[in-house]
């Protein structure tokens, strides 16, 4: 597949180890967001899981950062084509956050400051696959990159790792979030190159 581009050599091939299709390696940390970067004071931060029955589980910043945290090292892949290998994070596993949550719903809508949303199946959030991260590279997470805290789901394209996340809402049916309604794939597996609707 693919027509040959006359005279195209490709400069970054030596830095392309085992990347998902169509991705290239970057040392930077590019930013994909739909609007201005919100600044969220820690004393106004909270995170809430709302079940399908309306039951709420809420943590403020002190409660949240008192939960057991994990060091996470993972590769991340953005739909705008860059990948970054071996990024290191600190955060709370969603297994920990869901410990006391009773739900029979299979889908989750993640909500962020500013009204952004993204949808994820619950099974992609559990079993050591996802975190609410609040440190990157040993430093508090920059607002630009989603701080104070963002969802981290490294096995999906990075827009699913909602920045400025402030809640998860359980849903019986899968519904498109903000980026998904704007044309991105509902699931977003980088290894299957599920970038856009229909991929």
């Amino acid at each position: 597949m693919g027509i040959i581009s006359r005279g195209f050599g490709g400069r970054r091939r030596d830095s392309a180890p085992d990347l998902p299709p169509g991705q290239y390696l970057t040392q930077d940390f590019p930013v994909l967001s739909a609007g201005p970067t919100p600044r969220i004071p820690l004393d106004r931060w909270s995170f809430t899981i709302t079940t399908e029955t309306g039951r709420k589980h809420t943590w403020d910043w002190a409660e949240f950062t008192a939960l057991p945290a994990e060091e996470i090292t993972r590769d991340i892949h953005c739909v705008t084509k860059w990948s970054k290998l071996g990024t290191t994070w600190k955060g709370v596993s969603l297994d920990t956050l869901f410990e006391d949550v009773e739900t029979a719903a299979d889908y989750v809508m993640a909500h962020s400051k500013g009204g952004y949303t993204t949808n994820v199946p619950l099974q992609d959030l559990l079993d050591g696959q996802a975190w609410i991260a609040y440190e990157f590279d040993g430093e508090p997470l920059d607002p630009e990159h989603g701080g104070p805290a963002r969802l981290l789901i490294p096995h999906l394209y990075f827009w699913k790792s909602a920045k400025w996340v402030n809640g998860l809402e359980m849903m019986h049916e899968d519904e498109p979030g903000f980026w998904e309604a704007a044309g991105y794939h509902t699931y977003g597996d980088p290894w299957l190159e599920q970038r856009y609707q229909g991929d």
């Binding site: 693919g2 490709g10 970038r195």
Partner: peptide, 16 residues
């Protein structure tokens, strides 16, 4: 739009 270049040996690069 997304554009894809492909070298003779099949190496390819995409950009927006």
């Amino acid at each position: 739009l997304d554009l894809r270049l492909t070298a003779e040996d099949g190496y390819s690069a995409q950009r927006s």
